[in-house]
Every structure is written in structure tokens, then in C-alpha cells.
Design a protein around this nucleic acid. Structure first.
Lengths: 297, 297
DNA sequence: CGTAGGTCATGCAAAAATGTATGAATACTG
DNA sequence: CAGTATTCATACATTTTTGCATGACCTACG
């Protein structure tokens, strides 16, 4: 039934969706622009559906095309997973493992763990996908996920490695210049660093802290990394992980009793991957490394 | 990263896995045999892994290849789902819906429901995949599943439509010839129709009925349809759905009190498909039709 | 308002993939 | 045990696909 449409057409389709133009997709896929154009035409012909409205400035996906994105992405994820598994065949601990985590964890915590892991296993490749969007382990968009929430899906092996505490911080230097707030109400007179839109979790959590609200923020960004960098640069007072702040002698924690937010850290992967030595050893290394970094559960 | 391996290679790879030979895959995919051979060679080259051991009688997948099957199947399922969604674009109730169910349900119950549905919506195509293996709705191997167990996966919409009772049956004619067993112990002297290997569920259920055990079966098959046909043909005494037996005046139920097994019937689909008119209307038609056919939950 | 940089579409040549035909080796079968 | 029907591999012709070059068009910008 599906044997008359070449799968390469779907690859080109996805490329055009990603890049928004035939030319862009051609560059990305390493082929010529007319080739992509012909692929799209062939696919539209085969499916009997218009996928894009052509224009000189690019191609705009139709509603029909938008409804098909997900499936093309599934194919891509499966192809990528297949390649990763294939790369891990052969003797020794060789192969590629794709790990997803949040920005901050990925930048501040994981590098040391991964470095240690790769020191022991030089043939192990690690792909680090940093995003706050939860990637789908079932679709194998990633092999291993480090997340702040308990995974709900079945057929995942998940381990709770510890908890991370968030707290209000600023640099010593900032506080010397601007004065140290004595009570939470004083925060209103300070440069607060906060979120812009924020995730559902963040918005919910913020409700508990009436002095740390959106309209009070002097600087707001949804990049957790930028918030951390701003705090470190002495731009003001913001929230970051207590564990990270402790490493940095220049950072001071404020109102540790009133401002405290604890999150569980989970490492999870698809249960099928238990038999994959690479994934398993990476899983264990992440769990152990994070256990060391975090507070006990 | 995955942009140097054409997806068509995976399609050929899957074809060879399915058919066990280059020639077979070529026939299935509608191309020539050397083409498939070159595809496999190219894929092995690109992945750096031997996928098959060649022989004159066909190709034997290596362990490495076996570990990759799943991902190629995922791609195939995604491609098929994409095509189905594409086919449902456009005005009116048009499109293709893939329904999976067990053999017996699919042969004895669903045809009437599907016929009625298609009478109302002639442009609706239905693919009926009959298998006792639970197809993965998340991978979109099917759009809608009719199953005897409550689906455990999240992100599925599931409706319990009723219960089905299984009981011991035989034809009136058989009983006239061989005599009607008066007590369950008499069954040992009869031609019992039962399962061969059976599923985990069946083996578990069978434990409750000491007189209906594997070593007592005169005829055994794992095809539920064959069992039903054998009962109808008067070959002996076997288990079938009470609802089906009632339709057939020639069938008599035995030991309705001692032999009774009730199963819940669930209709489920991926929650994303609620927005697909075709899937939704098929889902509703199946739920309503099955509700009519089954006993209340 | 003209230039620069981007887009897609088209004609033609080159390259690549495919198909056909054939050979060699194995497995089944009467 | 010979004959038939498989299989995969190879050589060569053909078709298909792709790439290149170009033109037409739109947008942005000085």
C-alpha cells in the first residue's frame, strides 16, 4: 500500500518544512534546489494533496502539510535512532547515545559527567540535546532524558536520582552596591531577574512568592542560562539552583527560608535500551553523577 | 547527521527483512533484484555494519540487523500513517482509517458495522488489520484498535463498550450423535477443540477449567477463527463467544454456569485523531456497533 | 529607483540509479 | 540422480534522476 512512494520524498518534504524554502532544504540535504522542487511536486502528485503554496520568497505549508509534519518527524526520529543503534554494533563500548536535558543541567552539570564517562570509554559518542521541550523517548527522539518530572509513560525505565533546590541569589558585589534586602518586601527596590513567559511549571511555582512576580522584574528572559549568567554578572537578584550557586564564592543566597523550591530529578530511558551497553552505561553514569550533584531524594 | 543516508535504503532494508531475499524484496517493492542488492550494499557501507550474510538461498539477517528492524518498522508505520492522513484531506468524509482487531471480532462482528458505516460515508476507506498481536497505536501502526484489555498507554482515548462472554459450545447434531455431556467430567470422552500454544491470557484463563486442558484436546489450533469453524462444522466441543453462538440456531451451549469467561471490550485511538473526522466517526461507529453486539459493561 | 540578494521555474547535459540478460551455485523434487 | 526452480552476482544498455546554468520575479536597502 505504501510501496509506491519513495521515502526520500518524505525526507525532502521535511526539509522544506524546516527551512521554509526549496533552496534552503536543498542546502540542508546537500542536493540541488530543482531536485527538492521535483520531490515536492512528486509527493503532492502521489498524495493528491497540495502541500505548499509557492511564492517567490519561499514555500508556505498548507494546512494539509501541517497535519503531516508529525509523521515525517517520526520517520526522521526512527531513522536517527536506527543509525545510533547501528553505530553501537561491534566490539567494545562504541556507539552514539543521545541525551536530552534542560539548558542549565546540560551546561552546568552534565559536561563534567560526560567528560568523565568519555574518559573511560573514548569510543562512546554523546549527543546532547538541550531543550525544555520534553522529547519523546518512545519515538526515540532521544535515548536518555534528564527531567524534572516523573515520566508518565510506561515502558520507560526511570530512576529518581535526587532533588534540586532553587533559591534567590545575587553576587556579593551587587549586594554591596545596592544593599542587601532585609525582608522580602525590600525586593521591590531591587533589580529582579525573572522569566518572560515561563513554562506552566514556573508560572505555577511563582504564585507562591508574591514578592517575585512578573511585573516586578527588571530583566526578564525565558532562557534559564541567561538568567544564571545575569545573576553571575551582578545584574540583579534572581533564581538559580542552590547547588550551582554554592560552587561560586561570589554568589550569595537570599531568604533561604522563604524562597525555596525543590524539584525531583529523574533520569529515564526506553526499557528496550537496557540491553544496549552504551545506553546503559551512560544511564548509570548520569544517574550516579547527578546523584552526586543533587541532594538526596 | 542523518542526512547522508537516503530513506529509500531503509525501505529496501525492511523489504529484505520481510521477504528474506533480495529477489523477494524486489518483487514486493516493484523494482529489480540488483537494485535491492545495491541498496543493501550501500546501507551496509553507510552504517559500517554487516546486515546480512549472503547465501544462494537468501539472505540471513545478522544480529545487528535484527536490532535495527524495529526502527525501520517505525519509519514504515509513520509513512503509512502520513499517507492515511493525507488521504483524508479535502472536503467531505473522505480518507482511510486503519482498524485493528482480533480475528473473530474482525470476521464475525466488524463487517456489519463497517458496511453500515460505509453506506453512510462511501468515500471512507477502511483498512482492517486482524491480528492478536496488539498493534502500537502510538506508533500509528493502526488508527483504532478493538481490544480485550484496557489500554495502558497514556494519550489514548479509550472507551469500554461492553463485555463479551465466552462459553463452551457444540452443534446440536454433534450432541445428538455423541451424546450430551451431563457433567463436566464427561468432557474427557468428547472431541474437545482447544488452543495450541495460546496467548498468555488464554493459558491463564484455561487454568480455571480443569476439564478443558491442553492434553485433552482432540483438535487444537491457535486460530480462533478455525476453532469457531470447527465448532460450527460439528467437529466437537469448543469455546466461542456466547453472542455469536446465539445467532446460530444449530449451536448449543454447555455448562453455562461452570464455563463462563467474561472479557471487556475496549475501543481506543490516539487522542490526536479526535480532530480527524474520519477516525472520529469510525471510532463512534465501532463503539456504538460493538455496544449493540456485546453485553453491557 | 536601481542594486543586491533572495526566491522558484525551466532547459539541457551529466551522472547516477535502475532494468535486462545472463551465469553460477544451491535446494528441492520426482 | 537429473531436472526444475530458486537464489545472488555481474556486465551492459537504458532510463531516470540529478546538477548546472539561466531567467523571471520579489524584497530589502541605500
Amino acid at each position: 500500500m505504501t510501496y509506491d512512494i519513495g521515502w526520500d520524498l518524505y525526507r525532502s518534504f521535511l526539509g522544506v518544512l524546516r527551512e521554509g524554502s526549496l533552496s534552503g532544504a536543498a542546502r540542508r540535504l546537500g542536493v540541488a534546489q530543482p531536485t527538492i522542487g521535483r520531490h515536492i511536486a512528486a509527493l503532492e502528485e502521489a498524495l493528491g494533496v497540495a502541500l505548499f503554496t509557492r511564492s517567490q520568497s519561499g514555500l508556505l505549508p498548507t494546512d494539509a502539510a501541517s497535519r503531516l509534519v508529525h509523521y515525517a518527524e517520526s520517520m526522521e526520529a526512527a531513522a536517527a535512532a536506527l543509525e545510533r543503534v547501528a553505530s553501537s554494533q561491534g566490539p567494545g563500548m562504541r556507539g552514539t547515545v543521545r541525551v536530552t536535558a534542560s539548558d542549565v543541567i546540560g551546561v552546568e552539570v552534565l559536561p563534567a559527567i560526560i567528560a568523565g564517562l568519555r574518559e573511560q570509554h573514548p569510543d562512546l559518542r554523546v549527543e546532547l540535546a538541550l531543550t525544555n521541550k520534553i522529547q519523546d523517548l518512545l519515538r526515540r527522539e532521544a535515548d536518555i532524558a534528564v527531567r524534572m518530572t516523573r515520566p508518565r509513560q510506561v515502558s520507560l525505565v526511570a530512576r529518581r536520582v535526587g532533588t534540586i533546590e532553587l533559591g534567590l541569589h545575587a553576587t556579593r558585589r551587587y549586594l554591596e552596591r545596592q544593599g542587601t534586602p532585609r525582608q522580602t518586601g525590600d525586593l521591590a527596590r531591587h533589580a529582579l531577574i525573572g522569566f518572560d513567559e515561563g513554562t506552566a511549571f514556573v508560572r505555577e511555582a511563582a504564585k507562591s512568592f508574591p514578592d517575585f512576580q512578573r511585573d516586578a522584574f527588571a530583566i526578564s528572559t525565558d532562557s534559564d542560562l541567561a538568567q544564571l549568567a545575569l545573576i553571575r554578572a551582578g545584574a540583579g537578584i534572581g533564581i538559580c539552583q542552590v547547588g550551582l550557586a554554592k560552587r561560586d564564592a561570589a554568589l550569595v543566597r537570599l531568604f533561604p527560608d522563604q524562597f525555596s523550591l525543590k524539584m525531583e530529578i529523574w533520569v529515564s530511558m526506553h526499557e528496550d535500551l537496557r540491553n544496549s551497553p552504551c545506553c546503559r552505561i551512560t544511564f548509570d553514569a548520569l544517574a550516579e553523577g547527578l546523584r552526586f550533584h543533587t541532594d538526596p531524594p
